[in-house]
């Protein structure tokens, strides 16, 4: 790699490290593994740096695929977690502890989702990416993103129980909650 390209790579790592690490952490639920995974992804990006048009997209894809591969091999560690939050988040109802409990409960539920489903939710609701962009990052169809997102929310609501505050109003995007979308490669549905 040329000195200029190396400099560009260094700038990219420095500028985007924290943002990418945050996303990776949300995908893995484990700080140490997130760092490890992101480093591996950056090593791969470094190897192909001169041929990559969109480094951020490339690294995100590798992170997601690595996490999925890892999850398939050792799902047990999927449930491990770093220390609980040390700061109490703000709450809308004036009870800081109540806000903490609800978010912790929701985060616990998020961590039980399969990795692809979690990736869709993280990209949609943390990165705020449009569905089409999520599909581009994941390398899948728009229909798959919609069905995964919809099913992920349904599953979260199921996990949180009737007091979760969610109401069953069907898919916001109109795709419904059963995952039976027209152009999805997955097209599986729970009975």
């Amino acid at each position: 790699m040329s000195a200029k390209a190396e400099e560009q790579f260094r700038d990219f790592v420095t500028a985007r490290w924290r943002a990418l690490l945050r996303t990776t952490y949300l995908l893995t639920g484990d700080h140490g593994r997130a760092e490890d995974l992101l480093q591996v992804a950056l090593v791969r990006a470094h190897r192909r740096w001169s041929r990559i048009d969109d480094p951020e997209l490339y690294v995100r894809r590798i992170v997601i695929n690595l996490n999925h591969s890892w999850w398939r091999r050792r799902r047990i560690a999927e449930h491990l977690t770093d220390a609980p939050p040390e700061t109490v988040p703000r709450s809308v109802d004036g009870d800081p502890q109540a806000g903490y409990d609800l978010r912790d409960e929701l985060w616990t539920a998020v961590r039980t989702l399969p990795p692809r489903m979690r990736a869709v939710l993280v990209l949609r609701y943390f990165e705020d990416l449009p569905e089409a962009e999520v599909a581009r990052v994941l390398g899948c169809s728009l229909g798959t993103v919609k069905s995964q997102s919809s099913r992920g929310l349904v599953r979260l609501r199921d996990l949180l129980g009737p007091d979760s505050g969610g109401t069953d109003s069907g898919g916001r995007d109109g795709s419904g909650g059963n995952g039976k979308t027209g152009n999805s490669d997955m097209a599986g549905r729970k009975p």
């Binding site: 949300l26 988040p89 939710l121 609701y125 929310l153 969610g166 069953d168």
Partner: peptide
């Protein structure tokens, strides 16, 4: 699915990422 759950999800993910 309700917007309420989506909002909670946004806040939860942001809060976790802040760690």
């Amino acid at each position: 699915m309700s917007d309420q759950l989506e909002s909670r999800l946004r806040r939860t993910l942001a809060s976790q990422a802040e760690r």
